[in-house]
Amino acid sequence: MDVFMKGLSKAKEGVVAAAEKTKQGVAEAAGKTKEGVLYVGSKTKEGVVHGVATVAEKTKEQVTNVGGAVVTGVTAVAQKTVEGAGSIAAATGFVKKDQLGKNEEGAPQEGILEDMPVDPDNEAYEMPSEEGYQDYEPEA
């Protein structure tokens, strides 16, 4: 019985440690998101679009440190934060509304985080759909 109880105690310690790591990862992701939003706020009209992409990228980098179902929630929060940063930029006159959601080359930025393969159960990952990809044929 002692062996059984000791095993359960060790398992509990492992769960607590994993929860603490997840909590730490979420806190880091939130900190990076805040950094990115402050970065966007300090940019001029020309830099705002690039700044919004930076927020998304920093958040995406930190999301990889967070495991399990938390990833889905962090990704949703990050996307809403990026959308909010863009709205703030438009409201303050840093950028025109028609410039939001495009990178410096004018290509749409939507789907940055949505296409990231995420499995809350950590069982399997699927690649994003290939609808947006084109076949590449090298020139002879």
Rank of each mutant, 00 (worst) to 15 (best):
E126L: 06
A53D: 10
K34L: 04
L113E: 11
E126S: 05
V77M: 13
K58V: 08
T33R: 00
A107L: 11
G14K: 15
S87V: 12
G86L: 05
L113C: 06
K34Q: 00
E35W: 14
V55H: 01
V77P: 01
E61R: 07
G86Y: 09
V16P: 00
N122Q: 10
G84V: 11
V37K: 00
E28T: 09
D98S: 06
T81I: 14
T75V: 08
S9N: 13
V26W: 15
E105N: 12
H50C: 09
Q109E: 06
T59N: 00
E28L: 07
P120H: 13
M5P: 00
V48K: 00
A76E: 04
K21L: 13
V71N: 02
H50K: 13
A76M: 08
V3C: 03
G47C: 09
H50Q: 08
Q79L: 09
E126H: 13
G93E: 02
L113H: 15
H50L: 09
V77Q: 02
D135A: 02
V52N: 00
E83T: 12
K80A: 07
K10T: 06
F4A: 01
N122R: 14
M116G: 04
E61G: 10
V3W: 05
E105F: 05
K97A: 09
A11W: 15
F94R: 01
G25H: 13
V77F: 13
E46F: 15
G36M: 14
L38G: 02
V52K: 02
G93T: 05
T22K: 00
P138Y: 07
G73Y: 10
A30L: 10
A56I: 12
P108S: 09
V74P: 01
E105S: 08
E105G: 13
V15P: 00
Q109C: 06
T64H: 15
Y125R: 05
V63S: 02
T75K: 15
E126C: 11
G7Y: 06
T22V: 04
K80S: 13
V26Q: 00
L38T: 07
M5K: 06
F4Y: 13
E105W: 01
E137K: 06
T75E: 02
V15C: 06
Q99V: 13
A27Q: 11
G14T: 14
F4Q: 00
V15H: 00
G84P: 02
M127Q: 08
G51D: 01
K80M: 06
E131I: 10
